[in-house]
Design a protein around this nucleic acid. Structure first.
Lengths: 251, 251
DNA sequence: CGGTTCCTTTTGGTATTACCAATTTTCTTG
DNA sequence: CAAGAAAATTGGTAATACCAAAAGGAACCG
């Protein structure tokens, strides 16, 4: 009955991931009510406090809204509304990362030490292990990118890149889209990461920039692949065109 | 017994807010360990499950990191008023801007409209007027750089660059250094800004990147010129060497 | 018959207790 | 003094109970 058994660490994280995937898959439409905590507890074979922790995790991320005495309701799904304000899409975030982290990798290639290189190589292996585990998180992935940012020896660069990474969690739409893309696309990331490390080891800034851009370009592609809504399809074409224009201009 | 009273709704939210405020106030430095869950429970007069829920809320937000069997540790300071600028020198800030704004200018060159171009040209004149006035501020300068960031059509890029610009105000030393540099060096900035606009008007990404980097490179030079302290002299040489290495590698 | 009231049920909110597992500390012990 | 084992500490999870808010339905009243 339970898809989660011997979760390595915190159970609530596994459960939260499961629920997030169900939300992304559309099992619960917008506005729908999730099963009661007690039901989820028996369904997933965990205790009610654990269910509550997972619920709270989703609530903090803005994915659901809990109404006392009533239940937990789905808040928003990707593409449902285009708030003209500060809502930064997953595409914009990743495009920004492509630019900034590309330059950071180039700078890091001229600064990196053997120790940092070894640490980053270890993270690549950790990422591979994460990808083999369907329930794997992306902690190692985050650590990988931040380690490169740190190798620039520039706190401002590190801060900006860390912020960009964490920004994706603040937008429910972006978080869901990334989750969909992650579960749908688990293949070539290892090779891409290896290429980045290779360039860093060679202390080749140009190659490092290219490898990092290639990697994040793939991420954008997987995001596009995970996008289905028609509204987003427009943005998809626009983003693609923009990226092509920029890439051609800097080739 | 408890400092938390008012909130009729979820207790864990009140607790989480309290803890966040304590983190922001610096009561727990980065890397420090928070009191054990059982201690927090008695301290705030709530049960341990409630404490756990608050802890998890902070963890999901990335404020703390929970290590099994060890405790909860402070990760970073809350979003808006966190002070990464404390350790970030004016040199690092400007170096980051050199990288990021260079790319932003390149991307903007492929996106910019005639209207935006006209606005930016107007800002160049405003900068010239500002420089002629010894008491002039740098509002137009800021507006100039942000207008280019906005022309990328990417909110994440705009946000990151705006943040980098504003970060200089968070460090008194950095602000002072910038002020000294500004008053000591007022001549070529107009030409540099004109060169950027020229490249944008030509829709030439490579030229735009080069012009922006050249401008911010000049800013770094003026910062170095305005630096007198011996301690900084070391950083000066290091930064100069790093920049040279990067520039050579990307020429 | 329609609407209101009230009670019962359901659901989330919190507390209590207990026990397990990982970690850290302390104290043996060679 | 160091290595290793035992104890204390800490987070992780479970089970249970009770409260308060909300929802649903039945009884009551107009």
């Amino acid at each position: 009955m339970s898809d989660i058994e011997k979760g390595p660490d915190r159970l609530y994280q596994d459960l939260a991931r499961n629920l997030t995937e169900e939300l992304a898959s559309g099992a619960y439409p917008v506005g729908a009510r999730l099963p009661a905590e007690r039901e989820l507890a028996v369904k997933y074979g965990v205790s009610r406090p654990t269910v509550r922790e997972a619920i709270i995790a989703l609530e903090v991320q803005g994915l659901i809204e809990v109404r006392i005495g009533s239940g937990a309701y789905v808040r928003r799904l990707p593409g449902s509304e285009d708030l003209p304000g500060f809502n930064v899409s997953a595409f914009e975030l990743t495009e920004a990362r492509l630019l900034f982290e590309g330059e950071a990798a180039a700078l890091a290639a001229t600064q990196i030490t053997d120790e940092e290189l070894a640490e980053i190589e270890g993270l690549v292996e950790a990422i591979a292990r994460e990808n083999n585990d369907p329930r794997g998180s992306e902690k190692a992935d985050r650590a990988f990118h931040l380690a490169i940012a740190k190798a620039t020896r520039n706190g401002a660069i590190f801060d900006a890149i860390e912020r960009l990474w964490d920004l994706r969690s603040t937008s429910p739409e972006a978080a869901l889209l990334h989750e969909k893309a992650r579960t749908a696309n688990i293949k070539p990331v290892v090779d891409e990461h290896s290429a980045i490390v290779e360039a860093l080891r060679a202390r080749d800034p140009v190659a490092a920039r290219l490898a990092m851009r290639g990697h994040l370009s793939q991420v954008i592609d997987s995001l596009l692949f995970a996008t289905e809504e028609r509204q987003i399809q427009e943005a998809r074409r626009a983003a693609q065109a923009k990226r092509d224009r920029y890439a051609r201009a800097t080739a």
